[in-house]
């Protein structure tokens, strides 16, 4: 159990948090990566998912993208991107070493839950409701914005929440291929046999993951209050993140 004391000491030492390459800097870097990738995935995934759902097309693609996303190891995709001539390990602004490769992998792995949940959310709007909207003389666009989107929102948001968890996990794994972020504390610790440091890094990563999940859950509850019960539908696309 000496490693546990080492980990505790590492967590309490100011020097492990501050300075260049300290945990605070890496934490900020990983949060920035997570936010950017999630935003990119939302910009790409939401229009596709909601549009397909509204048109009732491409269901096969929208549902199977999750199956493929689950089967491809995040670690393997990160490794491939880093080893390719582009994006490779080039530094990218505040995102650090292998920044583009990491961002790309993070965005790709955020897409499946967003697309699948978004599509299913719009498709699950009851048929009689959309029929009534059409009967009232709403155009397709009006029906989408005033009827389908509000009703679909809880499930769309639970997809975003799953994506957030996925992105945070993938961002941590980026360190296995010498990418940026907090995972560095873990991998450096393990590769240099300083297990206390590695475990300390794992504690920070796990705690921040839980905090992010709690924040997202609270946000979801605030937005989706008085709507459909989101708990009943949250299981769509639920799987260990990486």
């Amino acid at each position: 159990m000496r490693v546990l004391r080492d980990a505790w000491d590492h967590l309490l030492a100011a020097s492990s948090w501050t300075g260049e390459g300290g945990m605070l800097e890496l934490l900020g870097q990983q949060l920035l990566l997570t936010a950017t990738a999630l935003l990119l995935a939302l910009l790409v995934g939401l229009p596709v998912a909601l549009g397909l759902g509204h048109l009732g097309r491409g269901g096969f693609l929208a549902v199977n993208v999750s199956n493929v996303g689950r089967a491809v190891p995040t670690f393997a995709l990160l490794a491939l991107l880093v080893t390719l001539d582009w994006p490779g390990t080039d530094s990218f602004g505040p995102y650090g070493r292998a920044g583009i490769a990491t961002l790309l992998a993070l965005t790709l792995f955020a897409l499946p839950p967003i697309i699948t949940n978004g599509y299913v959310a719009v498709r699950e709007v009851p048929g009689d409701v959309t029929e009534a909207a059409t009967g009232m003389g709403m155009t397709g666009a009006q029906r989408f914005w005033r009827v389908e989107l509000p009703l679909a929102l809880p499930l769309v948001l639970s997809g975003v929440r799953l994506a957030l968890v996925q992105v945070w996990a993938t961002a941590t794994i980026a360190a296995l291929v010498a990418g940026p972020g907090l995972g560095r504390v873990i991998t450096d610790g393990f590769y240099r046999s300083q297990y206390g440091q590695g475990i300390a890094g794992a504690v920070v990563v796990a705690l921040v993951a839980l905090v992010l999940e709690l924040l997202a859950a609270t946000l979801q509850r605030l937005v989706a209050r008085d709507r459909r019960d989101p708990v009943a539908t949250v299981s769509t696309g639920h799987h260990p993140a990486g």
Partner: peptide
Amino acid sequence: STGLYTVPSIALFPLLVP
């Protein structure tokens, strides 16, 4: 189980190592 699936695997393994 929701809390657990939130924790990335690369952070869970080190927590089991001790």
